[in-house]
């Protein structure tokens, strides 16, 4: 056996080469449409750009310091923060409530599950157009309801005090379907036996909810909280259709702000600096979630 040679490098890397072949389409696409543009965005954020989006003048961190001093950007960040605060907790609590209801084993429950998940099948654009009409000051359902109750009319999308709240309400509705579907899946994965032994002990519904359901559901909850946070920061379509960032920039969320800065004002440098800010925020959210989640979450 002493004659047995170590296989040549060509042979030893055979598996690597085959694997590369299978991975090539993904790697190529990720390089062109994810990694390259990410570095390019960071690069552009240090420049003033020309009309074609090419770097023209190096300005260092000036784009960033400009943003930090710009009231428009500070307002946009504030609006984004409020929007996340309005939409994520309420959206998840509602979806959890529906998922708990729909997890009961009753006749016809399949119908209700379909209804709760239906908003997932409705695009942001279509939902926004429906809500745009519901918010319509004269013909919309909300103001008709208010006048039936003899309450003062509200300019839902035109009043800076109400616009962000109105957009948030419609967004909660749009996201319920997906959160519901994920949470219901999580509930159905919980082992039935856990409940059976607790029933023998005579534990009540809310006791079981607190002591069994929620702890066992925590990985799913953790997942859906992360996804919802990230989604909220990325909202765009509802703003473009419902308010175009107005009135008085009260709904100018970060992605909409990037879009305007880049494709309407052609300021690609400052737009890139905003995009980098968005990237950093999402990175922090994800890391925080994982750090906190590791401690809190109970895995089966």
């Amino acid at each position: 056996m002493t004659l047995l040679e170590k296989p040549g490098i060509w042979k030893r890397t055979a598996n690597g080469r085959t694997a590369l072949l299978y991975l090539l389409p993904s790697i190529l696409l990720f390089s062109v449409f994810v990694f390259y543009p990410m570095f390019r965005t960071i690069y552009l954020s240090f420049f003033l750009t020309d009309q074609n989006g090419d770097a023209a003048i190096w300005v260092g961190f000036e784009n960033y310091s400009y943003l930090l001093e710009s009231t428009a950007f500070i307002n946009s960040m504030k609006a984004t923060g409020l929007f996340v605060l309005y939409t994520v907790p309420i959206g998840i609590i509602l979806a959890l409530f529906f998922a708990l209801l729909a997890n009961e084993k009753l006749r016809g429950i399949g119908f209700f599950r379909t209804v709760y998940s239906s908003t997932m099948g409705i695009s942001v654009a279509a939902s926004s157009v429906i809500w745009l009409f519901m918010f319509n000051p004269s013909m919309g359902m909300f103001n008709r309801l208010l006048s039936l109750l003899n309450l003062p009319q509200i300019q839902w999308l035109l009043d800076p005090q109400w616009a962000l709240l109105s957009v948030s309400i419609s967004t909660i509705w749009m996201n319920i379907g997906f959160s519901f579907l994920i949470l219901l899946g999580g509930l159905q994965n919980i082992d039935e036996h856990l409940y059976e032994s607790s029933r023998i002990d005579g534990a009540g519904y809310f006791y079981r909810l607190r002591r069994i359901t929620l702890p066992m559901l925590s990985p799913t909850l953790f997942f859906i909280i992360t996804i919802s946070l990230i989604n909220a920061f990325q909202s765009f379509g509802q703003i473009d259709i419902l308010t175009q960032g107005g009135p008085s920039a009260s709904t100018n969320l970060i992605v909409y702000s990037i879009y305007r800065e880049a494709f309407i004002n052609y300021q690609f440098g400052t737009a890139s600096a905003q995009a980098v800010t968005l990237f950093i925020i999402i990175l922090i959210v994800t890391i925080l979630q994982f750090k906190l989640g590791e401690r809190r979450v109970h895995y089966q």
């Binding site: 990694f35 543009p37 990410m38 965005t41 990325q234 494709f263 999402i282």
Partner: peptide
């Protein structure tokens, strides 16, 4: 790639 929001890269992507 899951950590990079698609909206943060849309400017270069459009130019590509």
């Amino acid at each position: 790639t899951m950590m990079i929001p698609w909206e943060a890269t849309m400017i270069p992507n459009k130019f590509t």
